[in-house]
Design a protein around this nucleic acid. Structure first.
Lengths: 129, 129
DNA sequence: CCTTTACCTTCCAGTCACTGGAAGCCCTAT
DNA sequence: ATAGGGCTTCCAGTGACTGGAAGGTAAAGG
């Protein structure tokens, strides 16, 4: 498989796949002409990475997960821990965004949004009141 | 005011304040010795920026908001539009995170987290099933 | 007056995960 | 022979800082 085919099948841009090789997540073979020659194994790994990234795991988490995936003697507890920590981070992020959302929604609500300069949004940003 | 005092009062790291000057958000005067000499006006702007950033506005949004803040002839509608667009982006982000959270929580739930290698999390990442 | 300590300055590099673009080689079809 | 598309590498840029080095300056203590 050339890069564009594997990109299509793994749902990743070709650029990203090259980048993943650069940082050592995959090691595709090369044809005589220098083109990357992807095996099914590479495709599986890339699909694994695409799904891990879609769940918001960092690249370093993905590296860990991929290593666990390939390690037949892994303990599922190790996988679970990575996932749980990530879940906690997502919860933090959601909480933070909800806080912002609440404040912002109130301010937007309070602003007339007309031609006059008076604006509760700016007042709040200026005074923090 | 020197940078450390204004940093303390605006709740921003000194590094960030220097960065904000570099990108043209503020233009503090200079003392003869080369130290930045912050006026109350600079402090107000920095506090404004700190609060805008805390609500998740991008630096470019902050630039716009600061310009509106300083423009006595602004229309509040312009401010409201920036805030509303940002609110919509936050909502998108929350929705995306909630999607991830839901999937992840299910997977974490399903994983025994013991010494055995069998793991629904890895299965899902590998198969997408 | 000297030294220490705590500021302040600039500049450069690194973060994270790509993304865009340039320059150039390779393969296929006409 | 040429046109097109795909492939390669390398370099630079994104956003918003953050860390650290190298060096000037100020205030306090001895």
């Amino acid at each position: 498989m050339n890069i564009s085919e594997v990109a299509r099948r793994a749902h990743l841009p070709a650029k990203t796949i090259r980048y993943y090789e650069e940082i050592g997540l995959i090691r595709p073979a090369r044809d005589a002409n220098g083109y990357r020659a992807f095996r099914d194994d590479d495709l599986h790994k890339l699909a694994f990475l695409a799904r891990s990234r879609a769940l918001g795991f960092s690249i370093e988490d993905c590296r860990t997960l991929l290593a666990l995936y390939e390690d037949e003697t892994r303990a599922s507890a190790d996988v679970k821990q990575v996932a749980q920590e990530h879940l906690a981070q997502i919860d933090d992020k959601i909480a933070q965004l909800r806080g912002m959302r609440e404040t912002l929604a109130e301010l937007v609500q309070a602003c007339h949004g007309d031609n006059r300069p008076d604006c509760p949004i700016l007042r709040d940003l200026a005074d923090g009141t």
